[in-house]
């Protein structure tokens, strides 16, 4: 056996031991516990059926609120992200402005949307307003980064040519960077909207509005048949939004590809 083969064997052994130790320390190598878990899951799954049709109206209304939280949050997030992204774009601004803007975006992104939800419940009280603000802030952090990376990726020759007319930075953004990056920005906006629909459906766990409030309530009150109705409605909306968003993004990116240089 060569030295390299022995090293490989050791590496595999270390990897296997690490996985085993990790599983044992989180309690997943306890057969009695796993057996109980499997039984509980089977009871839970049995209790989910048949779904309770009486809560359909309530759940649908809550789902609409979830969609509103996601949509308003995404749009508000975009409105916050755009100026920050312009300040963070090195094609437009020097490091004096771009570095603090990047740092701020990174800080916003560090906090998960659910935690933003809790912060805004404290700030503005229970309800969809807190959820919308939570989603908006998280989206601003994510979109801001995507936006400035996209704007910096614009063909440098286009930037030079438009800069050469003697325009200012905002004019450069308005007439070169944003139109050139528009298709990519739209595709990213749809992607984050799709993500936010999923994120908004658990905002209710922390009292920030939407269907999450009912999901948690049905679990706590052991009303699993009502829970399954809520889950089915959520699943239906998520699948529909995924499908629609993927279609629009494909067509937008296809349109973008048609305007690349040399076409």
């Amino acid at each position: 056996m060569t030295r390299s083969e022995r090293l490989h064997q050791w590496l595999w052994l270390v990897l296997a031991l690490s996985i085993g130790l990790s599983l044992a320390s989180v309690g997943l190598l306890d057969p009695a516990r796993l057996g109980r878990g499997a039984m509980n899951i089977s009871i839970f799954v049995t209790a989910l059926f048949p779904p309770n049709p009486r809560v359909l109206g309530t759940v649908t209304k809550a789902m609409l609120e979830t969609i509103q939280i996601a949509f308003a949050g995404t749009m508000l997030g975009f409105a916050l992200a755009l100026p920050l992204a312009l300040a963070a774009t090195r094609t437009l601004m020097g490091p004096t402005a771009s570095s603090p803007a990047r740092l701020l975006l990174a800080l916003i992104r560090t906090v998960p949307s659910l935690l933003w939800g809790i912060i805004f419940v404290v700030a503005v009280g229970l309800g969809p307003a807190a959820g919308t603000l939570g989603i908006a802030l998280y989206s601003a952090g994510y979109l801001g980064k995507i936006l400035y990376e996209t704007l910096e990726g614009v063909d440098p020759e286009v930037v030079e040519a438009v800069r050469s007319v003697g325009c200012g930075r905002l004019q450069l953004a308005r007439y070169a960077l944003l139109p050139e990056a528009a298709n990519h920005i739209l595709a990213q906006l749809l992607f984050i909207l799709e993500y936010n629909i999923r994120a908004s459906s658990i905002m209710g766990f922390v009292g920030a509005g939407g269907i999450g409030f009912y999901l948690l309530g049905y679990i706590q009150m052991l009303q699993y048949d009502s829970l399954s109705t809520a889950l089915l409605v959520t699943l239906l909306v998520v699948v529909a939004v995924d499908w629609l968003s993927a279609r629009i993004r494909r067509s937008v990116l296809h349109m973008g590809a048609a305007v690349q240089p040399g076409t």
Binding site: V158, V165, G166, R169, P261
Partner: peptide
């Protein structure tokens, strides 16, 4: 890299630098 340039001097780069959209 970001300052304003003299508009009395026009510059046409090799691939024109037009905004295609």
């Amino acid at each position: 890299t970001c300052g304003r340039l003299d508009r009395r001097v026009a510059y046409i780069p090799q691939h024109l630098g037009l905004v295609r959209t």
